[in-house]
Write a protein that binds this DNA or RNA. Sequence first.
DNA 1: CGGCTTGTTGATTTAACTCAATGCCCGTGG
DNA 2: CCACGGGCATTGAGTTAAATCAACAAGCCG
Lengths: 242, 242
Amino acid sequence: MTFVFNEREKCGSCPIRHRAICARCDEDELTLLEGMKSYQTFEAGQPIIWRGDDLTHFASLVSGIASLSRTLEDGRTQMVGLLLPSDFIGRPGRETVDFDVTAVTEVTLCRFQRRPFEDLVERVPHISQRMMEMALDELTAAREWMVLLGRKTAREKIATFLEMIVRRETVPTQSIQEYQLPLTREEIANFLGLTLETISRQLTSLKKDGVVEFIDRRHFRIKDLNALHLASGDDADGGVIV
Amino acid sequence: MTFVFNEREKCGSCPIRHRAICARCDEDELTLLEGMKSYQTFEAGQPIIWRGDDLTHFASLVSGIASLSRTLEDGRTQMVGLLLPSDFIGRPGRETVDFDVTAVTEVTLCRFQRRPFEDLVERVPHISQRMMEMALDELTAAREWMVLLGRKTAREKIATFLEMIVRRETVPTQSIQEYQLPLTREEIANFLGLTLETISRQLTSLKKDGVVEFIDRRHFRIKDLNALHLASGDDADGGVIV
DNA sequence: CGGCTTGTTGATTTAACTCAATGCCCGTGG
DNA sequence: CCACGGGCATTGAGTTAAATCAACAAGCCG
């Protein structure tokens, strides 16, 4: 079953149908969205929108990975979130964009023009309800990341990051699995509030300690999940039984 | 006009009527909330709810200041937000609480039992719409704080913090005004991801540089607003005309 | 086969932390 | 009324985790 990113495609078979902003919509509401949507694709590395730009469209990320970040004048950059399929871009009620959005991999967006979509948010409770849920989830994630940025050591930061990747991708039954780093060392550094050299050093340190194993620069395996969790600095009990 | 925190009081004259979760509600919807609300007061320093606790009530903060924070096992604490009047506590759809909530000053909450309130969120679009707006605003604030925690220097962090206080309290016309630090040095440190000694040192440094002036430990005046803004590390142009 | 991007490793510096002493303010009780 | 003690804040001395600067290695692509 392939879904082609074409406006004539039905939303019903869209890969993010049940997680995106439309998750709670019924058939009729979906038809409204169907009439408004348009797709747009960005190559890896391309900027999608800059902070301060006029917000002409809202969008759901359908495929690929994008980053949300802010750069200070002297070039210091902090990533404030990774956008994955079903994540939403734009803030109804605002005229401009607060953070830079950049395609990390090739990205496809399902876009809606601002005005018509804002009207829909007002008129269709299923959309504002879903938007509320998603915003609250992201808020919790952002706050947890604040703890990481403010209080964790470099090693804890990387361990947390690796654990996050493992959790996202793991189906509980899978055993020794290969995972992929979606970001370069520099991007990881900007996500964790560190420098790329520190990322490199801490990765080799985790490697030396037998926690992870690298197939190549971008692919790794977890050799000791319990040790990884301990290294993350989170809740000592939370993970595997000791 | 005094508003007494008594269940028989009408919501119409509540001090946070037009900013809280009820902001968009009409008279009828307000009556529903009126029938559900109860007030609770906490002394300064008291815990309001702990991470992991069952969420029995949602609440709007009516008066005072509370903090939202997380503490790692070894005692490292990171504050992830300050709750001010009209801010909301609790996440509809979750059973437990994600962060510790503590009264910084004396705090009064307007509370709603979980189940009935969750039903209301489903049935009354004005509530989910307002909740969405508030969550999105907080999300932007949280992300901006992530930039501070991940990339700003100690001096920039404190300057940003002071500027935040000044912005919150200032009516544009006011001139040389006195502001109050709502937190102790230690609490500021936990908010900014620093230690209390660093807070102290940086405050005296800003004092020496003629940026601020202290009346006592908790009260200060801004001597050079432009310099304060420059020290915050934010957008070089954003503030006062150079 | 170079040239470019990305990543690793080493040497050195530095901003912020830690540890420790002292000061200040305020309330309480002799 | 003054002494004492506890909480909060300041300041100093020394340490350290991560940043910076710099060289080099490993892929990758035309």
